[in-house]
Computed example of a mutant assay.
Amino acid sequence: MKRLASRLATGFLERMVKLVLMHKADSIYEDELDAVYDFPRAYLKPVRDAVGDWIVYYEPVKAGPRGYFAVARIARVDEHPRIEGRFLARIAPGSYLRFVSDVPRLVNGRPLESLLTEADGTPKRGGATQSAVRRLPDAEFARILDLGLPQDLERIEATRYDAPGQGLAEEPLAFERPVLERLTRRAYRDVAFRRKVREAYDYRCAMSGLRLRNGGGRPEVQAAHIRPVASDGSDSVRNGLALSGTLHWMFDRGLISVAEDGETILVSGNKVPGDVVDRLLSPERRLLKPLDPRDAPHRENLRWHRENVFGQIGETGPAPWD
């Protein structure tokens, strides 16, 4: 990601091929959208052409309402190790990002892809609309990204709960942030990740069940990466938990984790006083489920946390309850 950002800054990014990749949650293909996209031989050439470039994930009409819903970058293509005639597009670590707003298939009755548009602007039927892999011109990629990941997302989030007339809500943007700069800028990605994780849990802490807001109505719950980005963790909602500030601190320091069942909250009993546990965690010691089951924490991310963080880091400085 650092190398890509550097090349963008100097203006020497070579031209590659962007794609739309269709995804259906209940299909036979073994997609893990932040890690791998499974596809048949028929699409091998366009996917290989897209190695190093960005793709947009798309949910077809019969699979659900999301339309265009995420972006990622393809790192390489491998043959499927178990199924002949199938291939795996490996997603570059740290590149996957959910849109803060799903982008509809049609805007003002017109498709966002020229490949799906008749000469009179109406949607095409059949043919290309059924293709699981479609080439996407740069301008159409940029338009979809602007709708799903607004240029001024950081300002929108910073002023989201301000009273009318406060802050910078009425000030114009000083400049346009290029699409690819947004996708590689850590501060921007953190804002998008936080918004989607907190929305997934309805702004409740996944371990206490509490929904806390400050005097201005701003949610106090935070978004924690289960596997840190620095350790090749992704910005997928499935690599996130909505947690209160104290529980976020405890989770990052290995004082609490989640068991193999994906629900039971584990506590490092010799490091956390019992009365603190009783005050901070729900009585059932069970993880709150997100609104959409597809956003549930991935078991592999939880396993990584148990094996690499839980019980191994411990406290640094005074605990928040001291």
Rank of each mutant, 00 (worst) to 15 (best):
M1F: 06
L4A: 09
L8W: 11
T10S: 14
T10E: 15
G11R: 08
M16Y: 06
L19D: 08
H23F: 09
A25E: 12
S27N: 07
I28W: 09
E30Q: 15
L33P: 00
L33D: 05
A35W: 07
Y37G: 00
F39L: 04
A42K: 15
Y43A: 08
L44V: 07
K45T: 07
R48G: 02
G52M: 04
G52N: 03
I55L: 10
K62E: 15
A63H: 06
I74F: 08
D78K: 14
P81V: 01
F87N: 03
A89W: 01
P93Y: 04
G94M: 02
R98V: 00
V100E: 02
V100I: 13
R105Q: 09
V107P: 01
N108M: 03
R110N: 05
P111D: 04
L112M: 11
L115H: 10
T129V: 15
A139K: 14
L145D: 00
L147N: 02
L153P: 12
L153N: 04
R155C: 01
I156H: 11
D162G: 13
P164F: 07
G167R: 15
A169F: 03
P172Q: 11
P178M: 11
L180Q: 12
E181V: 15
R189H: 10
A192G: 08
A192K: 02
K196G: 02
A200P: 03
G209V: 12
N214C: 04
G216Y: 13
E220Y: 05
V221A: 12
I226W: 08
I226N: 05
P228D: 12
A230M: 06
G233R: 09
D235P: 01
N239K: 05
L243K: 08
G245E: 03
G245T: 01
T246R: 09
D252K: 07
S257A: 15
S257Y: 06
D261V: 11
G269Q: 10
P273R: 12
V277D: 04
D278K: 15
R286I: 09
R286M: 12
L288G: 05
L291H: 09
D295S: 14
L302F: 06
H305Q: 03
H305W: 07
R306D: 08
G317F: 11
P318D: 15
A319Q: 13
W321T: 05
